[in-house]
């Protein structure tokens, strides 16, 4: 057991988390080492000193003021992921609407072309018949 290890165990020793074996080793080193004893004394003294800082109690009416503040606070802003999801949903709707419109438009165009083709084909056939009759 050396000084470095002993001092590494200070926190666990202070918080009562050293098991029996480690505690015996730790105490044995401390009994023999004046430097570690001094370090340990300073270490624990500082922790004790923290306890002298005063605590505060809530002022009167804290609960009521908090509840009032709750009523005055606007609804929370949506989180980052929530915003991303909203934009993604909007983009999906726009894309779907555009795609549906485009497909519908193409179908109308195809139907119109088919009608024109049929009409032209009909006229061609008619002129071929007339031409054949003239030949005869």
């Amino acid at each position: 057991m050396n000084c470095r290890k002993t001092q590494q165990w200070f926190a666990e020793r202070l918080d009562g988390r050293l098991d029996e074996t480690r505690q015996r080793l730790w105490e044995a080193h401390l009994a023999d080492c004046a430097a570690c004893r001094q370090e340990w004394a300073d270490y624990t003294a500082a922790w004790e000193t923290l306890g002298r800082a005063p605590a505060v109690a809530p002022s009167a009416g804290f609960v009521e003021r908090t509840l009032r503040r709750l009523d005055d606070t606007p609804a929370p802003e949506p989180g980052r992921w929530s915003l991303v999801l909203r934009w993604a949903a909007l983009a999906a709707v726009v894309t779907l609407t555009g795609w549906t419109g485009w497909v519908g438009y193409q179908r109308l165009q195809n139907e119109r072309l088919a009608r024109v083709y049929e009409a032209v084909r009909g006229e061609v056939l008619e002129s071929e018949i007339v031409e054949s009759l003239n030949y005869l």
Binding site: P54, A57, S59
Partner: peptide, 8 residues
Amino acid sequence: GGWQPVDQ
């Protein structure tokens, strides 16, 4: 008269 330190 606001908040109070606990240990005075």
